[in-house]
C-alpha cells in the first residue's frame, strides 16, 4: 500500500498523489450488483458470507445497478439473459468493472458446443476486466479475482492510458 504511511508520522497531513488517492478510494469500496445466475452464484454467496467475508474488501451487494461499481457474471449466460445483462451493464455508472466468474461466462463452459441457448463468453456482449477460471471457482478464487481487479484499478491513471 504505502499510501497512508505519512499520516501516522506527520500527524494530520496526508501526502498522496490525487491519482493514487482516487484509485485507492475506488478499489476499496467496490459495490457489486446483487446479481447471480447459476451455480457460480452459490459460490459467490458463500464468498459474501461470514467465512470468506467479501465485505472486508468493501464489496457490498447493492439491489440496483445504479448504485454499483462492479458486476460479477456468476454463471451460465443464456442468449435470453445476455440481452438483460447488457441492459444492467448500461445502467451502471462509470467507472464500472466486470468480473467474469467461472467457465460458463468465460467461454460457454460445458455448453460450448451443443448449448444452442448459451452465450459462449460474456465478453461477446460486455467488456471483461478479470476472468476467474473454475467450474465453479472456489471462494478463494473469486477473492483472488477481486484482488487482481484491485491491482488493475490501482494502476489506472487519470492522464495516461493504463497498460
Amino acid at each position: 500500500m504505502g499510501l497512508l504511511d505519512k499520516e501516522f508520522t506527520d500527524g494530520n497531513i496526508v501526502i498522496a498523489k490525487a491519482e493514487d488517492l482516487m484509485n485507492w478510494a475506488r478499489l476499496s469500496s467496490l459495490w457489486q450488483v446483487s446479481f447471480g445466475l447459476a451455480c457460480c452464484a452459490i459460490e459467490m454467496m458463500a464468498t459474501s458470507a461470514s467465512h470468506y467475508d467479501f465485505d472486508r474488501f468493501g464489496v457490498i451487494p447493492r439491489p440496483s445497478p445504479r448504485h454499483a461499481d462492479i458486476i460479477i457474471i456468476s454463471g451460465t449466460v443464456t442468449l435470453k439473459m445476455a440481452t438483460r445483462i447488457k441492459r444492467l451493464y448500461e445502467q451502471m455508472p462509470e467507472p464500472k468493472y466486470i468480473i467474469s466468474m467461472g467457465s460458463c461466462s468465460n467461454s460457454g463452459g460445458p455448453y460450448w458446443e451443443h448449448g444452442y441457448h448459451v452465450l459462449k463468453g460474456i465478453d461477446r456482449v460486455i467488456p471483461v476486466d478479470v476472468y476467474v477460471p473454475g467450474c465453479p471457482p472456489r471462494p478463494e478464487a473469486l477473492l483472488e479475482g477481486l484482488i487482481k481487479l484491485q491491482e488493475k484499478i490501482r494502476k489506472t491513471s487519470l492522464v495516461k492510458k493504463s497498460t
Binding site: L79, K80, A82, T83, S107, G108, W112, E113, Y116, H117, L119, K120, R124, V125
Partner: peptide, 30 residues
C-alpha cells in the same frame, strides 16, 4: 417458454435443427 420470444431459428430439440450464426448481434457458435 424457454427460448427468447423473438427466436427465429426454429425449435432446437428437433434433430435437423441448425443453430443460427447470430442472435441480436451476438455470435452464437463457439
Amino acid at each position: 417458454i424457454l427460448m427468447p420470444y423473438d427466436w427465429e431459428a426454429g425449435h432446437p430439440l428437433r434433430k435437423d435443427y441448425e443453430n443460427p450464426e447470430f442472435y441480436q448481434g451476438m455470435k452464437v457458435p463457439f
